[in-house]
């Protein structure tokens, strides 16, 4: 990434050297509006959310403290188990497909081809499009008499119930998720590929390495931190997916497409089980936190090993 979080300490500023207190006050004053918002809507909620997860709370009456009961109930909740399995499937299918496709696309776009602006624009369009509109477009494409089934029919394949067959629906949602997300990671990979010094590849070519060898011995190792980064952020994103499921399938048929992001919403805001929802969300939070920390630690190691 272009931005390094541990970049240099700012140059020593020299506002009113005689009056450090005045300068410090300016600092606190200028930070305060932004800090208040972060405090109120991120920092306090993180802790408050944990407290909520220890309560039985339907928002209308006062919360009653029940200790770890919500967490114990999650272990017994068959639907929660199904939901976690769906989420796991969603993640292990969608993330690798996304990473492999976006890497291939970025490599292809990195060649000197005509019409590159057109290609890039085409791949960006789904990224900037709102998920509700995307859901609508795909509900029509995947409808029983929609575009996809009519295309299949014209080559003699039986129509498929893309969104109403419990064995297929989750795959359809995954497909739309991948379609929508390709352009984003593609641009991240493209930037990484363009950062690779040309001399390295040229030197390898002079030493007799062919394109495939160059790719696996030079390109892949150099962009491996980015591959890892994109994978982790993809996993985190898939843990939180909600919009497409809500609009396209409402978690159904049955619970076939109920992923954790949808189940948490359902528990907290449909059934008003705020405490239970908070407990589910906290489990996901811990999982994401662990992944993020692994990502940071390994990234640091990679950065050092490059030097």
């Amino acid at each position: 990434m272009a931005i390094d979080s541990k970049s240099q300490i700012s140059p020593s500023s020299n506002w009113s050297k005689k009056n450090k207190i005045k300068e410090a006050l300016w600092g606190y004053f200028l930070i305060s509006p932004n800090f208040l918002i972060i405090l109120l809507f991120t920092i306090i909620p993180v802790f408050f959310s944990f407290y909520m997860s220890l309560t039985d709370w339907n928002i209308l009456s006062a919360p009653s403290f029940i200790g770890l009961e919500n967490y114990q109930n999650i272990l017994k909740d068959a639907l929660a188990k199904e939901t976690f399995l769906n989420t796991f499937y969603f993640t292990v299918v969608s993330v690798p497909i996304n990473v492999i496709f976006t890497l291939i696309l970025a490599i292809l776009l990195n060649q000197k081809i005509k019409g590159i602006t057109f290609f890039r624009t085409a791949y960006y369009l789904p990224v900037i499009s709102a998920s509700v509109a995307v859901s609508l477009m795909f509900m029509w494409i995947l409808a029983n008499n929609g575009l996809l089934n009519q295309m299949l029919e014209s080559i003699g394949i039986e129509p498929i119930r893309w969104l109403t067959n419990p064995k297929i629906a989750l795959n359809s949602v995954i497909g739309v998720t991948v379609w929508k997300g390709l352009g984003l990671n593609m641009i991240i990979f493209l930037a990484a590929l363009q950062d690779i010094p040309k001399e390295l590849l040229e030197a390898a070519a002079i030493d007799g390495a062919n394109r495939i060898q160059q790719f696996f011995k030079i390109t892949i190792p150099l962009i491996s931190p980015i591959i890892f980064f994109v994978t982790i952020t993809g996993v985190i994103g898939s843990f939180q997916s909600f919009d497409l499921v809500y609009n396209m399938t409402k978690g159904g048929p049955g619970h076939a497409t109920t992923v954790i992001g949808y189940y948490i919403w359902k528990q907290a805001f449909d059934y008003m089980h705020m405490g239970y929802g908070a407990a589910l969300a906290y489990i996901v939070f811990i999982a994401i936190l662990v992944l993020t920390i692994i990502q940071w630690v390994l990234r640091k190691r990679w950065v050092y090993s490059e030097e």
Binding site: F41, P45, F48, S49, M52, F239, Q240, G261, Y282, V284
Partner: peptide
């Protein structure tokens, strides 16, 4: 992650 903040922020 934003998902963790939905429920507490609703209360806030």
């Amino acid at each position: 992650p934003g998902m963790v903040l939905l429920i507490p922020n609703f209360v806030v």
